[in-house]
Every structure is written in C-alpha cells, then in structure tokens.
Design a protein around this nucleic acid. Structure first.
Lengths: 124, 124
DNA sequence: TGGACAGGATTACGCTGGTAATCCAGATTT
DNA sequence: AAATCTGGATTACCAGCGTAATCCTGTCCA
C-alpha cells in the first residue's frame, strides 16, 4: 500500500471537491471553492492545486489548453490515516472516550442516537 | 472564553504529560517523555516547553533555581477544539459517518461494542 | 578554587503551509 | 496587428514546526 501523502487542512477543502466529482478543471474547482467560501482567492487555489500535484495527491491531464484534475489518492485512505492519528493523539487510541466526548458535546437528537445505536448493532 | 492556543502534534505529547500530573519540573517532563519514547531528546523537549509557554498553553513558576510547569489550558478545551475541527474537516461535521468509519476500521470486540451502545443509551 | 555540570535562554535551520503576486505564452478581442 | 485576457508556472514571504546546538550563569564536586 503506497503511503498516502500528508494533506494539509486547507488542501482538504480542495480534495473534498475533487473527491465529490472529478475530473474537474481548475476553473471548476475554484468556483466550487468560492461557492462554499467567497474569500477563496483563485491564485491561492491554483497554488494548492500545484502542491497537491507535486505531492502526488492529484494528477492532471491536458485537455486542449486546459487541465483536468483528478484525485490520485482515495478519500477512504486519507480519512483512515487522519482518523487513526487523531484518535491516537487526542484520545489515546481508544474509541470509548472519544464517543463519550462527542455524544456529550454534539447535541444529538434522540433520533440520531438511535441511528448510532443501530449502527453498532449491525456490527455486533 | 479565551481562545485556546493551537497545540501542534508534538506539543500534544508534552501537554498530555502535564495534564496527567502537574506541576512538574522540566526534568520530570523529560523523563516522562523518554519513558514513552526513548528517542525524545531533552533539548527538543525544552524547546517545546518554551514554545508552549510563549503561546500561553503552559505557565511556570520558579521554585528555587528550577521551574515548575503546569498547563494553562484545560485538556477538555483542547480536546473539544480539535475534535470539532476534525469532525468538520474529515466527516463534514456529522457524527454518523464518523462512527461508521471507526466501527468499520477499528477491530472491536463484542464487549467494546456493547460498551459503546451502553454509552449511547445513557444519553437517550 | 577552578573546572564540570545542570537548567534555562537564545539561536539555528530546513521544511511545510497559507496566502498571494508575477511571469509567460497562447487565445481572443477590438 | 496591438492590446488584453486566461490558464498555468514560477517566485515570494513569513509563520510555525520538528529538531537540536550553543550560550550563559549559578552550583557543586574534586
């Protein structure tokens, strides 16, 4: 399993766009970013795209004079990596305190709690 | 609520020591770190301690010629901050996919699953 | 008493990240 | 054709991080 490159916080925003739909042109990516946060600067987005390409998280292919970008790493793999390190660092690696924390601090509806329980039941 | 300073990954190691027990001398902190990972270099630990002091995550008080360090920020607050941003960034802010991910990827014993369910029941 | 040592302060240094601006070449507009 | 625009490439810049080494000063041992 090729080790997944480290995606920074801001780069995640970009990756999420590409994971949701790809390939996309830089223009489309930029629009998507601006849609969710108008303060995104196009130049910044391009820089990040480049960096993601350099760290092999994203590939591109020329389509005429413009590029089409697509993710090279799978979202599931990235999620797995950061989830693991997060759980480790913040909750000493054990799920129970983590779940305890979230159910305590996220205000959850009874319905949501039931859903979560159902989720666990499936695993039982 | 004073905004909590941003604690870096490595700094978390230090903070966890102090959260577990404080006040501690730098010597004690260094020993604790080396205990859990012998590659910790004392100088590095001191640097990090200083940085934590500078960013007001840790305070110290002179005890004779040495310092006693103690956390200035509460673990609960730090945990809350990073948990929030993690959930947001990686799972779009919703608990269910997150829990789904973890129960899928952490191999959990039936007992653990029961515990987690119990946890949810308490909240119901 | 002079040198070694301990503990804290200061300095170092290369890498990543956030945030852009500038440069350049082909496409488009006037 | 000259000027402009567009999209990508290159360059910029500073803060923070990981990782220490060096410096300074007071203390303790030989």
């Amino acid at each position: 399993m090729k080790s997944i490159p480290k995606i920074s916080e801001t780069e995640w925003d970009l990756m999420k766009i590409l994971w949701a739909k790809s390939p996309l042109t830089s223009q489309e990516i930029i629009e998507a970013l601006e849609a969710q946060d108008p303060t995104w600067h196009p130049k910044t987005a391009r820089t990040l795209l480049n960096r993601l390409v350099r760290k092999k998280a994203v590939s591109f292919q020329m389509e005429g004079r413009i590029y089409l970008y697509r993710p090279l790493v799978k979202q599931a793999d990235c999620v797995k990596a950061v989830s693991q390190s997060f759980l480790e660092r913040v909750f000493g690696g054990s799920l129970k305190p983590m779940l305890a924390h979230y159910v305590e601090h996220q205000k959850l509806s009874a319905e949501e709690i039931r859903e979560l329980k159902r989720l666990l039941e499936e695993r039982e």
